[in-house]
Amino acid sequence: MWLVFIEKREGKIKKSSLETLAETSRRAEELDLEVAAVVVGSSFENLTPLWVQGAKKTYWLKGEDLEVYSPEIYAQVLYELIQQIKPEAVFFAGTALGRDLAPRLAAKLRVALVSDCTRIIISNGSLLFVRPVYAGKALLTLKLKTKPFLATLRPNVFPLKEIKDENIAPGEIIEKTIGLNYNGPVAKVVEIVREEGAELDVTEAEVIISGGRGMKAAENFNLLRELSTLIPRSAIGASRAAVDSGWIGHQHQVGQTGKTVCPNLYLAFGISGSIQHLAGMSGSKVIVAVNKDPEAPIFKVADLGVVGDLFQIIPPLKEELRKALAE
């Protein structure tokens, strides 16, 4: 059996957890294995998406100290569950939480952990994991030799299953009240501080509208925000040059010292396409770049490159998008 850790934020199941479940259940089917989900804490509103994405069972861990995430406590309760049910593998979405929790658990179990997988292959009956290394400049294929092994899957890479909810029979829910056997010191989340007007994070957005030094000033990012209000599930990205100029917060930075993203669409305005910027976004499914320099390296990765002045192109682009999306 494979186990998939399901993460929630404000009571809702995270999309990247569902992607992880969908992908692992596709692969597990090939190997004739079953996939179970594990949820922690009591406030899950609706478990239907878990059955839809391929879980046959859900372990539901309940307990006093489990409402708020703590890596020390979550690693402990997952450890206890793993000792009981002995899965062959445990998967996490490669989110902020997944990448915080999985290594702690791997050290507790003393097992292999592969981070940030972008492909799972079954080749001659053996299971292989592919992940980008050196900021995407190389691809590494690994075989994991421990039981269980752990893996985090990169968000926004794996497709969800498109099945109508009503066709799915609910799976089995196994509730476990875990008495906490952890009395070590813990880090406790006391507050979640949202960024002013913070929309969606770039790692979760389906469309990223990104600006670089060519944006020239902080207020010009409003041009990108206006485009973003037209496009559902879009977020604003930026190059380091824009962030370092103080035009936008660094949580928007894409690239090697920023975030690695793989949206369906990456729209780059006034970004030259330095190797460090490409490291964070060249995995995007479609790239459209606007730059006034026909030699800009960003054009090497763009599916559509538009040579021109972004300040002249954005206003008519807004109009065209508005028309297109209204239809």
């Binding site: 934020r9 989110t95 880090a187 406790k188 989340v189 979640i192 501080v193 960024e195």
Partner: peptide, 14 residues
């Protein structure tokens, strides 16, 4: 410590 998560910061005490 303030730690970065998707679209927000977690304030963590330890």
């Amino acid at each position: 410590a303030y730690r970065e998560i998707e679209g927000a910061l977690e304030k963590v005490v330890f």
